[in-house]
Design a protein around this nucleic acid. Structure first.
Lengths: 232, 232
DNA sequence: CGGATAGTGCCAGCCAGCCGACAATGCTGA
DNA sequence: TCAGCATTGTCGGCTGGCTGGCACTATCCG
């Protein structure tokens, strides 16, 4: 259970609400509702009318699409402080992807109506939304490029780079360690490849010295990964 | 040459400025500058600091990325009334793609500074920007899905559907005709496939009766294309 | 404590789509 | 008018990645 004051504190770390002052965050927190999901539970599906956005508090959420013939692709995973389901709130159209809990998940939700009021009353939220969407779009473009033009190892390398950058925004040492609670199958969905290929690519990256796997932890060599990822 | 009043009239058709009133459009038009490019000319390149957005007046612009090993992919073509180069203006970061004139091109440009003033003074522009970016993001997601999960014919079919929907927004008859001034090589870049494959896929679509080619015109059967494109 | 379930590592066979190449056609500009 | 270039239509060889399957291990839960 999350108290309203904990919620207010928490959303300060979320992109859309970080620019609000203390009072603003309190006000938003008042409007948010807590939701809990079990592992594998569908949070929403593509095509649903969808009228609220989520901020992840605990756990991971897979954002993916599923074709009629059963093929699947993950756009991203939402982790704590990540926002998802925002598109339906921004433009009022249907859900563009499926959201599925990967493990137990807790989120805070904000309704379209509440967000509309927020947007109208706080101009800095509109600006934050524009920056947020711009960043999303840059990510999407990069992902499109990766999947269309780069081989699997490069896509994996980029994924690790992006994750590392997210966990350690300050670009400091060349080797960073973090835990990666993702199965190879999830990785395969994210990277748009088959599970066996991901397995092989991981082994390859490790052989090249770009990563090192220690249980569920992973050590990344930023330099090496950049090289393999094709980032000049 | 475009006069300021012609410009004001023209930008009414562009997504970001359509919500402005006559006076607002006049004001924006005053700030815009005309640019002309020859066929093949690079308008900007990825990584450039980029400080203005463009509205296409005449011609087509290819928005693409190029990898170090020479592989290329088009995200989209900007056509008259389309906006491109907006990301750098929204978030102040570098250009995320290359923009190249396909044929002679004329654009109107608006500087980041001008846009910033516009954003601050007209709240409806912020809202338009959010909707605009949301739509872009939905497109990007759809493209990602298509390229990762669907075969070439399906991607081509979706491309035609999207084009048809853009030219005839009112969903009326099941067959629509329009001219398609794009070479197969351009199509291949857009669809993320090799040129020969596009050629074969076009032949296949025509054999299936989903399209019909008459010179540079094309007749699309919406139903058939939807079926092949995997749109339920 | 033991069984079930999920994740990992790996192999073999198959196929879609790539590449490079070439002729035929058509448009363009001198 | 004609040469030159871009575009189109097709091939064949090659290969990266997929599918499906199987054994082994770790982990979670009853």
């Amino acid at each position: 259970m999350v108290s309203k004051s904990e919620a207010a504190e928490f959303i300060a770390k979320a992109p859309l609400f970080g620019t609000l002052d203390e009072a603003g965050r309190q006000a938003v927190a008042q409007e948010m509702r807590e939701s809990n999901y079990d592992s594998g539970q569908v949070i929403f599906s593509r095509g649903d009318p969808g009228a609220e956005l989520h901020v992840v508090v605990k756990g991971r959420v897979r954002l993916s699409v599923l074709t009629s013939d059963g093929r699947e692709l993950s756009f991203a995973h939402a982790e704590p402080t990540s926002i998802f389901g925002e598109l339906a709130v921004f433009d009022g159209r249907a859900r563009s992807a499926d959201a599925t809990a990967v493990g137990k998940v807790q989120t805070l939700t904000l309704s379209r109506a509440s967000f509309g009021r927020l947007l109208a009353s706080k101009p800095q939220v509109a600006e934050a939304a524009i920056r947020f969407l711009s960043a999303r779009l840059r990510d999407a473009d990069e992902q499109l490029e990766a999947i269309a033009l780069h081989p699997i190892e490069a896509r994996l390398a980029r994924f690790f780079l992006a994750t590392a950058r997210q966990k350690y925004p300050e670009a400091k040492s060349s080797r960073v360690t973090f835990s990666l609670p993702i199965s190879q199958s999830e990785l395969a969905l994210l990277v748009g490849a088959s599970r066996p290929k991901v397995n092989a690519a991981l082994a390859l990256l490790e052989a090249e010295g770009a990563i090192e796997r220690k249980g569920s932890d992973i050590v990344c060599d930023i330099e090496a990964l950049s090289g393999i990822g094709g980032v000049e």
